[in-house]
Amino acid sequence: MDIDGFPSGLGDRASQMWAEVTEQYDLGAHEKALLEEVCRTMTDLDVLHERVTAQGHTIAGRVNPELVEARQMRIAFARLVAALRLPEDDTDAQPQRRVGVRGSYRLGGAS
């Protein structure tokens, strides 16, 4: 992070996301760390997208390894965003809270 707390090395979309989220919400240190990882992952996804666009989805008849990595990073991105628990709209200024743990599933209903 630089002097202002803005992470260095972010791409344009990730920088915009950082600025919007930190302007709108008062985040704790752990939430800023999560947001930074979200933004870094977004930057990496943008780089991978550019490479796949330039190289194509296949290389020598095989799936482009960068495309495979992008798929994995999208999964990580979705999990990081979910962990950050930002509200879905502007009407609720509080982060979403998860309540309880979902119980195990059983075939044939509860016993």
Rank of each mutant, 00 (worst) to 15 (best):
L10Q: 03
L10D: 05
G11T: 02
G11C: 01
D12L: 15
D12A: 14
A14M: 03
A14V: 01
A14H: 04
Q16I: 15
Q16F: 13
M17A: 05
A19P: 00
A19V: 12
A19R: 15
A19D: 11
E20D: 09
V21R: 06
T22K: 04
T22F: 08
E23Y: 10
Q24F: 09
Q24N: 08
D26Q: 14
D26V: 07
G28Q: 12
A29L: 14
A29Q: 14
H30V: 13
E31A: 14
K32M: 13
A33F: 07
L34S: 01
L35E: 03
L35G: 04
E36R: 15
E36G: 06
E37G: 00
E37I: 02
E37V: 05
C39W: 05
C39E: 05
C39R: 04
C39Q: 09
R40G: 07
T41I: 10
M42I: 05
V47C: 01
V47S: 07
V47Q: 09
L48S: 00
L48C: 01
E50H: 13
R51G: 00
R51N: 07
R51D: 10
R51L: 12
R51A: 07
V52Y: 14
T53R: 15
A54I: 06
A54V: 07
Q55H: 10
Q55L: 13
Q55Y: 07
G56W: 04
G56L: 02
H57K: 02
H57M: 08
H57L: 10
H57C: 03
H57F: 13
T58Q: 07
I59V: 14
N64G: 00
N64E: 02
N64K: 03
E66A: 06
E66H: 09
L67W: 06
V68M: 13
A70T: 01
R71K: 09
M73E: 07
R74K: 12
R74L: 07
R74A: 00
I75M: 06
A76C: 06
A76L: 12
A76E: 12
A76W: 08
A78P: 01
R79V: 02
R79W: 08
R79G: 05
R79C: 01
L80Q: 05
V81F: 04
V81K: 10
A83P: 00
A83Y: 03
A83M: 07
L84K: 04
L84Q: 01
L86H: 04
P87W: 02
P87L: 02
P87Y: 02
E88P: 00
D89W: 06
D90P: 00
D90H: 08
D92F: 11
D92Q: 13
D92C: 10
A93R: 06
Q94W: 07
Q94Y: 12
Q94R: 09
Q96M: 12
Q96R: 15
Q96D: 11
Q96V: 15
